[in-house]
Design a protein around this nucleic acid. Structure first.
Lengths: 252, 252
DNA sequence: TCGGATACCATACACCGTACGGAGTGACGT
DNA sequence: ACGTCACTCCGTACGGTGTATGGTATCCGA
């Protein structure tokens, strides 16, 4: 679990690439493998899904699969590499939009798929910052998103920026939805009993004088439906409106 | 390092809130403390800055401060709580915009400050998802951002969404800059030697036929200056253009 | 048949967060 | 003045982590 990035030019990096793109057939010499790489990755995802990514450990994955902990290392060089395989496998679930749609609908489809992926695999959010692997499914989805954005006819550098913007926006929204940064949700205090609770944080440290705007938003219920679906679609709409204006009326 | 959120209604939660807002004066009965809470938090940040957040451990912080590991627990209930204090302290460095500026300039100032904060404290990025603490400096900065956005005159729910959008966008851009998700940067292969390198990933797995759009963007240099400053400002501009249009011409 | 490559895994090591309890300290009540 | 006792500091220990090492069982190819 080192923080240093795997350098894809190194021998270990090439081994990782090969594992992602071209998992080797089981060798013919020794005893037969009891598992497949697919099963190992799927088992790891099941553990992350069931117990949370913080509880993901090689021993737990091994136990879940009914093998010894060290046996996993015959399938995978280490935990980081296993995690990259998990990420790429999660991206494998992303469907691609119909190419007959207008560019905006295609980009929105991509955003929806990203949102769905994060909802389905919340462990991605705790982890995506580790490293986005150079896996085939990641790259396929990104390529198709680039393709959809490129339909706008915008210059290449802008296409790349817009695509990153869309991915990043959905990730941010998903992160917010999962970690629930909304103040009201975190404290479990609703607007109703706000004025009654004069002990603890509210009323002693949080004062409407110090936080007038937040107080007003709160009173108007602006925090209530913080992270529903249409919250992130609002932001996406804002972004794509801007893109549409940039593109003039060029796109298909 | 549990993943379950600290519930701010629990006794431990109240202790955390008090630690954040109202650090208790050193008690008068026992031997004098060798350190202050400030020093502990600052020392932890120094360790995170020097060795990376993954290397941050109670033992290392203690060693850096010249005390025993367990002594830290007289200042702080645990590592998670120490981390919340670190985050709030990082937010303390965020300056607030001049209130005489137009709303858009104020929001842009906030975004710049957020960007600066992430550049100065990259360890925030690896961690922000753990939990955004209910600390005074976090809340002060957020309140002021809400205030600036509210100058648009937009409805309260929209103000909250836009403010979150701005924070989330800068975070996403900072994350991208740090983890470097760009393909070219990750592989260290520049456009020049792309066509020469026919071994390894490029030329065996990455084929222009499978990734035509990425290839074209690459050839045009669209990935070159991927994460410079004006990259994220481009996205922010897109967002704020949309907000401006939403607001009509209302803001100050 | 048998050599050798390979899978599986028990053990061990270094490191983590932190519970526990003992020793020393120093302000307070008397 | 002095004993009490809250308090700090911290050595030790426990259960967890990722994984290096090496032993043993297994099975293919010659």
């Amino acid at each position: 679990m080192d923080e240093t990035d795997i350098e894809y030019g190194t021998p270990e990096g090439r081994a990782m690439i090969r594992l992602l793109w071209d998992p080797p057939p089981p060798p013919t010499r020794g005893p037969r493998q009891r598992l497949t790489l697919e099963q190992v990755v799927a088992g790891a995802i099941e553990v992350a899904e069931a117990h949370g990514v913080d509880e993901l450990s090689m021993r737990k994955v091994a136990q879940h699969l009914g093998v010894g902990a060290m046996s996993l290392y015959t399938y995978v060089p280490g935990k980081d590499e296993l995690f990259e395989l998990m990420i790429d496998r999660a991206w494998a679930g992303r469907r691609l939009p119909d190419r007959d749609l207008r560019w905006r609908a295609q980009v929105e489809f991509h955003a929806h798929e990203a949102w769905r992926m994060y909802q389905e695999h919340p462990w991605l959010i705790r982890s995506n910052l580790w490293r986005m692997p150079l896996g085939p499914h990641v790259l396929d989805a990104q390529e198709d998103l680039y393709r959809a954005v490129a339909l706008t006819g915008l210059p290449e550098a802008t296409v790349s920026r817009v695509a990153n913007l869309v991915e990043s926006h959905v990730f941010g929204a998903a992160r917010a939805a999962v970690t629930d940064t909304s103040v009201s949700a975190r404290t479990g205090v609703t607007q109703d009993d706000y004025y009654e609770s004069r002990s603890g944080f509210w009323g002693t440290y949080y004062t409407p004088e110090r936080f007038p705007t937040m107080t007003r938003i709160w009173e108007k219920g602006g925090f209530d439906e913080e992270y529903s679906d249409d919250t992130w679609e609002f932001g996406l709409g804002l972004l794509l409106d801007g893109v549409e204006r940039l593109a003039g009326q060029a796109g298909t």
